[in-house]
């Protein structure tokens, strides 16, 4: 496959071949990441800037680590202390960065479509690190990489995603990517947190976790966005945890060695018990390691060549 893409905006626009190519490239990147001397000369002289309008620990650090290992110069804009607080528009901020000859901008924004908007107006490469409730493609890719490493080919594998689907861009991107790779995805959550439109993406929907667990190869717990608990979308945390929280006992219902994933940050004791999160079923730290490898692959693919022309 010849890579031509200049931006990573969502999973929808990626073909199955492109997803496979990214996951294939992430493998050698992981080998480099696990070396004692983890530094490459590959992207010497290239620069990657992180423009984060939303809070983030792992995504931003992961991108920065990935860029640095590849030899690129990386920087971050703390939006609160930048000209954004003086009222500068997103486009003007991004244009300023492009004028400084930055090669790649990684953006996280509260509005869906922010990354796509920038890609239309700027000549430099853009990676979407999360835009509103729309997409979080790099998280989905690292989840797919982790699942593939543990389960092999994803075709026909049964994946259950449980939790606050409504607010989750991680769920949307994962459904899209996993179904493209041939997996069977079931979304589980209370009716108020599970919009019926998601059927369009090719996932099954269910309100009862216990009936969906038998046969599941992996269960992905999503963070319950506690800040939204006031809005009356479910009666109480305790009830939510009893119906949709993952525990070791509940996991036994799958009848096989099921993987547990969580994109983080976790609310221990709400969507997942502490005991399960610390067990060997949980691949949560592996997801973080793989996140750096997948982002190294993406940065290499986007700015490592001369011929990236496709939006």
């Amino acid at each position: 496959m010849i890579w031509k893409r200049k931006h990573i905006l969502d999973i929808e626009s990626l073909s199955r071949e492109e997803i496979s190519h990214i996951l294939h490239t992430a493998k050698p990147m992981k080998e480099v990441l696990l070396r004692p001397l983890k530094k490459l000369p590959t992207l010497r002289g290239k620069s990657v800037l992180h423009l984060f309008y939303e809070a983030s620990t792992r995504t931003r650090t992961s991108f920065e680590t990935a860029g640095k290992i590849l030899g690129a110069d990386t920087g971050s804009i703390a939006v609160a202390q930048s000209s954004v607080s003086k009222g500068e528009s997103l486009l003007d901020t991004a244009k300023t960065l492009a004028a400084m000859q930055v090669d790649l901008v990684v953006i996280r924004h509260t509005s869906a479509g922010a990354a796509a908007f920038l890609s239309e107006h700027l000549k430099i490469g853009i990676i979407n690190a999360g835009d509103g409730q729309h997409a979080h493609p790099t998280q989905a890719l690292l989840d797919m990489f982790t699942l593939q490493e543990n389960l092999g080919d994803l075709a026909g594998k049964k994946i259950v995603i449980v939790g606050d689907i409504l607010h989750s861009r991680v769920a949307r991107s994962n459904v899209c990517g996993l179904t493209k790779m041939g997996a069977e995805v079931t979304l589980v959550g209370p009716p108020t947190l599970l919009p019926p439109e998601l059927k369009v993406l090719g996932a099954r929907l269910s309100h009862v976790l216990d009936t969906e667990l038998p046969g599941a190869d992996a269960v992905m717990a999503l963070r319950l966005q506690l800040e939204r608990q006031q809005s009356g979308l479910f009666p109480s945390l305790r009830e939510y945890s009893r119906l949709y929280g993952l525990s070791g006992q509940r996991l036994e219902k799958t009848g096989k060695k099921t993987l547990v994933l969580h994109p983080g940050p976790m609310n221990r004791g709400v969507e997942i018990t502490s005991e399960l999160a610390n067990s060997h079923y949980a691949k949560i730290e592996e997801q973080v390691t793989n996140g750096v490898a997948v982002r190294m692959a993406l940065i290499y693919l986007l700015v490592g060549g001369t011929n990236n022309v496709m939006a």
Partner: peptide, 18 residues
């Protein structure tokens, strides 16, 4: 990842595992 022609080569080479 150690090539000196990544900036000029037409077709981006596929990285394989070491």
């Amino acid at each position: 990842l150690y090539r000196d022609d990544l900036r000029t080569i037409d077709v981006q080479p596929v990285v394989q595992e070491t």
